[in-house]
Design a protein around this nucleic acid. Structure first.
Lengths: 342, 342
DNA sequence: TTGAAAGCGGTACCAT
DNA sequence: ATGGTACCGCTTTCAA
């Protein structure tokens, strides 16, 4: 059933029916009720494409996720993030369009997204330290919010990010406070902004304690189990293995643990481990248990906040860029030494 | 730049330009080249909404993912699955629309998706053993492919699924072959079809070996770390703990391991563990290492296959439902006993 | 081989 | 308070 048919059925004009349904004030209340009733009865839902054509708004938001041929993995946090966003979009009547776009085709894809006119705004995932997408999208004039930042760019754009630097500084400090001196970092790919900031935090904590980062304890790559496994094996085979490890992902931490198993070492006794993005809250306060300690960021609410930010940006294009920084939580599942300084 | 402007610019009619760009044969070759050249030059991309309105096709596919208020989690395999699908869609010129829809609002949301006209077909995720969505969508007359099946329904619909029953039968058999007699299962929510089938496989292996499933060793719930932790703790506190555990998810397995840690037990020595959806291929053949053994399904390619199936269905609505079953791989990272029979 | 014009299903301006 | 009508941008008959 479309508008025309509904209007004929009611003996009204399309105009009046449209107005009644869209809450315009100049419709008599009785008429509005009659129209709404009929619409409900016939399961009338306006055609989104026609509506979009007429209004110039697509009522949908795009999430662009970079994938590279080389790094096959799609970060699982996207799922969480998108869940948060989705709730906001649904409530506001927006659809969510996902675009996985490959390294090479970036700009053309964005241009298309814009020209095809099926998104009103974009969320940009996975920014690098210098990310050409940002200037490009700004030029294109489409509202967008970046999930993360591009540290080495000066442009002012809207973003939402967690405090990666702080989280990793605290995690590292926690281990230093426990007495560790040889602390490894198994990080994501450091061209990615988040990984770069994490390493900065790690380094800051070491330097603050008068320690020099040892390159032999620094690893970065795609955050797979395999990375953790290989890194840990390599370090265990070297002359001076670390006594503690900080990893960027729980997945990597699992690999680390397999390497420890293989060497007959016990996590929490022989080697301490802090992993990011693990939710150990169910273990909190079980202080005697040799488990991971973790930092965790509420990715899902990041998604919701980013979505809200973007919708505001779309509603009020005049307003300037918005920024939002969120803190990660340090979850101590095991504490064999002094608690970390907050 | 829109079609009208491009046509004026070229001194041609919209009709001719449209035909030239869409490969209609009745355009003179010289004209076509001139048009294509100009289109490229001006970055002309047809407006998708207008095109959709005119053709009646949205050129986009919806993925509907059920979320319930109670089970907050969104299964991380969606991310992988969608990645696979996305590649297929992109190549075929389709967009991907994600709809997370809440338990209550299911039918209304599908009806809307259909009526709003912004998807040409749907992939349905997370089917239950009896899933009302299937009959409903069939009635609605929109092409759809189910990722998974609904065991207790008789309707014939298109689906793609992994052989959950077989995977869990083999995993359980593997443990039986190692000599285990008390084998626990920590499963997903068994109203979900996949979890139900997994339990059937587990049970089949036990019965085949003349073993009776012990209800005290059966757990099901949302596949969180916490589930694995609580289940394992509870079993360890009981009179006759299991000597082996099969879990439906690597996340759950991590929780199991924490419970073992807490009890001072060693995985692979005191308790064996097989987890599903873990990729231990990097450990394959390291037979002496006490690690997880796993079954793994290539979720990403499931996504691609489902997408292809759906596009075929859309292209040829007359053809009947299609089905595709995929086998999971049993990855043996540790083998302290005889290998499982395949 | 090309063009004019009628939709596709709405919205919104201008009348009445 | 309601209706007529000109778009929105593209496709597709029908004519020339």
């Amino acid at each position: 059933m479309n508008l025309k048919q509904l209007a004929e059925h009611l003996g009204l004009s399309q105009t009046t029916v449209s107005r009644a349904l869209n809450g315009y004030p100049e419709v008599r209340e009785a008429t509005r009720l009659r129209v709404q009733e009929a619409a409900r009865l016939h399961n009338y839902t306006p055609n989104a494409r026609a509506k979009g054509l007429a209004t110039g708004r697509a009522m949908s938001i795009g999430h662009v996720i970079p994938v590279s041929k080389k790094h096959e993995m799609v970060n699982p946090v996207f799922a969480d993030f998108i869940t948060g966003s989705s709730e906001v979009y649904t409530r506001a009547g927006y659809d969510l369009v996902i675009s996985l776009v490959e390294d090479g085709a970036q700009e053309q894809r964005y241009r298309d997204l814009r020209a095809k006119g099926n998104v009103d705004g974009l969320i940009v995932h996975g920014p690098q330290r210098v990310d050409s997408r940002i200037d490009f999208l700004a030029d294109l004039g489409i509202p967008f919010v970046v999930h993360g930042r591009a540290s080495d760019m000066t442009a002012d754009y809207s973003w939402i990010d967690m405090n990666n630097r702080r989280a990793f500084r605290r995690a590292t400090q926690f281990l230093i406070d426990l007495g560790h001196r040889r602390i490894a970092l198994i990080n994501g790919i450091e061209a990615m902004d988040f990984a770069y900031r994490r390493r900065e935090g790690y380094r800051a904590a070491l330097e603050n304690a008068g320690l020099t980062p040892d390159p032999a304890l620094l690893f970065s790559g795609e955050m797979t189990e395999e990375l953790g496994y290989n890194a840990m094996r390599q370090m265990l085979a070297a002359p001076a293995p670390p006594t503690a490890v900080v990893t960027s992902s729980i997945v990597t931490a699992i690999g680390v643990r397999h390497a420890l198993d293989e060497a007959g070492l016990v996590m929490g006794r022989d080697v301490s481990l802090v992993s990011h993005d693990d939710d150990l809250s169910y273990l909190r306060n079980r202080a005697a248990v040799p488990v991971f300690t973790a930092t965790r960021s509420p990715v899902r609410s990041h998604g919701a906040l980013a979505a809200e930010m973007l919708l505001e940006l779309i509603a009020d294009p005049g307003s300037g860029p918005r920024h939002r920084m969120l803190e990660a939580e340090l979850i101590i599942g095991r504490s064999t030494g002094p608690a970390p300084q907050s």
